[in-house]
Amino acid sequence: MSDIKNIFDVSGRAMSAQLVRLNTIASNLANANSLSGSEDTAYRAMKPIFETKFADNVKDSGLSTTQAVGIVPTDRQPERIYMPEHPMADDTGFVYSAAVNVEEEFVEMLEATRQYQNNIEVVSTLRALMMRTISMGK
């Protein structure tokens, strides 16, 4: 990873982190209604882990961005549903539904979208300022 030099690095990387978050939310929602034959193979919601990445640890410049350092499955347990007629049911007649809370995912989707938009807004504002600064004295 190269170092963080300017505003485009800061906001660009924050946007890609938010995009990772939106992608995991999309995967979680896509798998929300899937059923599985055993508890181990049932789908579990995934969450990205965000970490601050500072521009310079020695010189405290105040410049930092965020980075998705990993994606982990949540420890919510899949729901056990009694459905003996289901083709994937186990010996005792149970299937396991994906451990995804749809409402939670929706709320997080809204939050991630807003933060993505905020970063775009910051970049476009500062870009306009830079363009005006370039034409200084004309």
């Binding site: 505003i7 800061v10 906001s11 965000f50 930092s64 965020t66 933060q115 905020n118 500062l126």
Partner: peptide, 15 residues
Amino acid sequence: NEMLASNIANAATPN
């Protein structure tokens, strides 16, 4: 401006 942009970029980062 860059500092405030860093804050906005880190709005969802724990700690």
